[in-house]
Write a protein that binds this DNA or RNA. Structure first.
Lengths: 257, 257
DNA sequence: CGGCGGCTTGAGGTTGGTCAAGGCATGTGG
DNA sequence: CCACATGCCTTGACCAACCTCAAGCCGCCG
């Protein structure tokens, strides 16, 4: 049993979710063992595979080990709004599972490796291990901050500013999971996809990208994006990396009553 | 001590935060007592009072007992994007406190009654009581869902649809905290404020409101908004109340390993 | 009574969406 | 190995939507 735990803990210690949680709060061995027990059923999802379809009920979460997905909603007008890009370490079905019927759809945009976790197991773990549920709470707060920044983008930023902000957000988030170099990354979305994310039409995304290139702020080679002038882009997009930063839980050190 | 606890639990059992948390998970007496101990320092904030200013560090949360506030960000262009309306039962400084420097500002839009909670106390409580941190996790997930819906609004919905969606969201959220009747509520924002929330200019909000009135979908008397045709508004704004619904945590009933 | 904040309405101009056509790369099947 | 199909990028023309600016109005509060 001890061996199983050790193996489980060992095999998952490099999992992006675990490292993310560990950045906000120090998890102990028992926490890691419990999380390891959760992340047993590995599954794969291929490109364009629907993982969650809006309107259906789900009692299972998928923790992303590698690959990307989009969380989106289709409107009756036929328009699509992408709400977020799901990256390694993110949890698919969070918060979809907390509702009777999923509010958004999630689709893989490349091949993905996932861990399937029944919602009941997840709930039980939260209720049993305060460290874990607190770390997840911080995780959810960061998620909300990312969403809030997207509201700013869509609502009040100019198209060029939006794009600048989006590119820097991608670079920063991808770096955090080790999928980007110092100045460049591979864009997982098509230009139309970018438009559905930041609220522009495909052609206009193209025009704005061309402008950033003309100004010498970025360069592109296929889907490889290189940030040439980060400082200028940060000013243009009013990008503050702070909202994506790791935010450690700092217990007071006092004993609870 | 027991008396203190009982008194504390009794005095806060009607608090909107407690009832909200209780809807998602059944809190036991010890949970309630701990929460009651947290909600001791009552303070008031008058209209237009800044509670959180972007860029500063905060180590204290404010739980809203009554009144409203806006969470927003000012851009260099002078534009303002309101990210959310803070209502009774919401927590101000969540997620702002989880960052070194606040990412958004929060300002009261009427007189408010708040409970001041040091962040350390909050953290300690989360780490000590898994029930509470799990309930807060569900709470944060709902918050994220509301934000996601705002992204859809700003990004892809037509102005008239946005407004319809926004009015229904207000009605539903206000009903949940007992601040609205079956079909009407008092709008706490000016038309320019609505514009800053849904990403339109003040004059255009006015035109869209006029159109909804002309179509007989709503009526207004000063700041009192009455929904005349909820069904039509729901279709127009593609509003599904589901994403605002209470979402109970359902433990499996199994014993954790 | 005077000032101010917010609502209402109008005119004009720009932005960015839509539609459409063409080009280029990739992949597939004969 | 070539022919073809497909998906995406690119560019252009047109036009409607919505912003900006501005002026007038109303109700409230000092």
């Amino acid at each position: 049993m001890a061996i199983v735990r050790k193996l489980a803990a060992g095999s998952i210690s490099g999992h992006p979710l675990i490292s993310k949680l560990n950045q906000s709060i120090a998890l102990d061995d028992a926490d890691l063992a419990a999380l390891g027990a959760l992340l047993q059923r590995k599954v794969v999802a291929h490109k364009a595979k629907d993982i969650i379809v809006e309107g259906y009920e789900y009692r299972v979460l998928h923790v992303v080990e590698s690959g990307f997905a989009i969380r989106y909603k289709l409107l009756h007008s036929g328009k699509r709004q992408i709400v977020n890009i799901v990256m390694p370490g993110d949890i698919i079905g969070f918060p979809a599972c907390f509702y009777e019927h999923a509010v958004f759809s999630v689709t893989a945009i490349g091949d993905m490796s996932l861990h399937r976790v029944p919602l009941d197991d997840f709930t039980d773990l939260c209720l049993a291990r305060a460290n874990v549920s607190t770390a997840l709470l911080w995780f959810a707060a960061r998620e909300a901050a990312i969403y809030a920044e997207h509201i700013i983008d869509a609502g009040r930023r100019e198209p060029l500013e939006r794009l600048a902000h989006f590119l820097l957000e991608m670079l920063t988030r991808l770096q955090a999971v080790g999928s980007a170099s110092e100045t460049s990354f591979v864009m997982p979305l098509s230009q139309e996809g970018i438009g559905d994310l930041i609220g522009l039409s495909g052609p206009h995304v193209n025009r704005m990208l061309a402008e950033l290139k003309r100004e010498g702020l970025i360069a592109m080679d296929g889907h490889e994006v290189t940030i040439l002038d980060r400082a200028a882009l940060q000013i243009l997009g009013e990008f503050r990396p702070a909202y994506l930063a790791r935010t450690p839980v700092r217990p007071s050190g006092r004993r609870p009553a």
